[in-house]
Design a binder for these strands. Structure first.
Lengths: 265, 265
DNA sequence: CGTCGGGTTGAGGGTGATCAAAGTTTGTGG
DNA sequence: CCACAAACTTTGATCACCCTCAACCCGACG
């Protein structure tokens, strides 16, 4: 598991599908700015302040712990390339994955105001991450109102995704659960311009997916086969190919409202 | 269902158990201030600003919709007395309760920056709620840094509770799930000084609990009976009495870290 | 070439769902 | 204040979805 999957995805351009227009900013902050400006219109000074944020970039292997439950981190982590996930483990050793994170996410932004980690944060693939000190972040939120609100909103979207995840795990049958999961990741990957919703790489094993969906690995395998047989999707290695997106969406009972990607007003 | 359960709970004082010291503030804002000062130390000017927040107080019956999925509310709602819950319903009509809210909560605080409701917010019991316009809230967050951070933190704790809820629904067996649910509500009720963690009123039917736990009502009933038989708790009408708190906690695999009630530093 | 992690397949079992109906409260209207 | 209706709880029976266990396969990699 030493390949950085995210890096191998080209910034595909295909006609007829939504393309995200990146602001005129380069460097590692680009992903963060692109993300924040999706929902909030920042001023030039805001963007400059973000670019000036001191950041330590590191390359991590797959399955690396970025933060562990009980720790009190002094920085947040911007996922620049690669995938990560948050998880908790019960006393009987069952793991539950809480969320999947893609480039542009700040998966531990909550640690800015919640000082003790209540879950683990781990890379799924080899990843490039940028660490930003809490002090710097707190400073920017105090000086730049719009940045503060944009970051706050990011944590709120985070929570909205958790809510839908609860519904998925609590009330949908296995096949629908898997469909919803794949639809969500696709939608989010497309929103940041990484790939298309119906064709993307997902560096997770079936065991990981089981932990994300609250299922057993064996059953995940059977669900995938069923989806393959019915022509809804391919899912080999770590490549997801949705063959029948409408049917997937219907199976999934998917409504992207909860992702709050179209923040009108 | 016209009885306001919350109102019937006296501010019990029992020796040997933690008591929350309320700040010297009265009126409907008291609950909010008490809540915010649990985790953040606010300045006098902050508290004054909160007290001065224009608020429209309303009494609602049980099962009243405060906000519905798809709506774009222009205010947030402070729960002054009574219980509420947030929920989503799948296309096949299965309801999943996402969270339970008690006096002092602002269950739709996320609407301040996420303009469209992605779920429903409903009263569980007859309740008194205070509506605060988004404009007023936005103004206070721009003028009072500490208030902004305290409110942001509240939404982060909200998310932390969602995360644990995912674990509960995704990875714990039914009995453990119920135990965890009752432990959490107890802990939170105790934290705001409403009642004790082992003796409180919970205005939910077994059907509601089933929707909260991702179980069927029939199975919820059987789980409750099992917990009764084993002497862990009583649960009659809407009164929860934990008889063996340690055993409940162990059954629940409960660790209150995720509630972030002891915000050291 | 052997090991290891992950995917696949089969068999059997259990937790919890569904269906149905009978009790029991609760609430309402006469 | 009683009577009735509605909502909730309880019980029983049956069923299915999904879990567990176990074995085997496959490709990657040392």
């Amino acid at each position: 598991m030493s390949i950085n999957y995210a890096k191998t995805i080209p910034a595909v351009k295909r006609p007829g599908l939504p393309q995200v227009e990146a602001p005129a900013v380069s460097g590692v902050s680009e992903r963060l700015i692109r993300r924040l400006t999706v929902s909030t219109s920042l001023e030039a000074a805001d963007i400059e302040a973000i670019v000036r944020l001191p950041m330590i970039v590191k390359d991590l292997p797959a399955q690396a712990a970025i933060a562990r439950e009980g720790e009190k981190p002094a920085q947040c982590c911007l996922l620049i390339d690669g995938f990560a996930c948050r998880s908790k483990t019960t006393d009987v050793g069952k793991r539950q994955i809480l969320s999947i994170h893609i480039p542009g996410d700040v998966p531990d932004l909550q640690s800015l105001h919640l000082h003790t980690m209540d879950h683990d944060l781990t890379t799924l693939s080899a990843s490039r991450v940028g660490f930003i000190a809490h002090d710097s972040l707190r400073a920017i939120t105090r000086e730049r109102q719009l940045v503060a609100e944009a970051l706050w909103r990011e944590t709120l979207i985070d929570a909205a995704v958790f809510r839908e995840w609860i519904v998925n795990v609590g009330r949908r049958p296995a096949t629908s659960r898997m469909a919803h999961f794949l639809a969500e990741i696709g939608k989010r990957i497309e929103a940041v311009g990484l790939a298309h919703a119906d064709e993307y790489d997902l560096p997770m094993t079936q065991i990981d997916m089981a932990d994300a969906l609250g299922l057993s690995p064996v059953h995940v395998n059977r669900v995938i086969q069923e989806l393959r047989r019915s022509g809804v999707l391919e899912l080999r290695k770590h490549a997801v190919s949705i063959r029948d997106l409408p049917q997937l969406m219907q199976l999934a009972d998917f409504d992207d409202l909860y992702l709050h990607q179209n923040q009108a007003v």
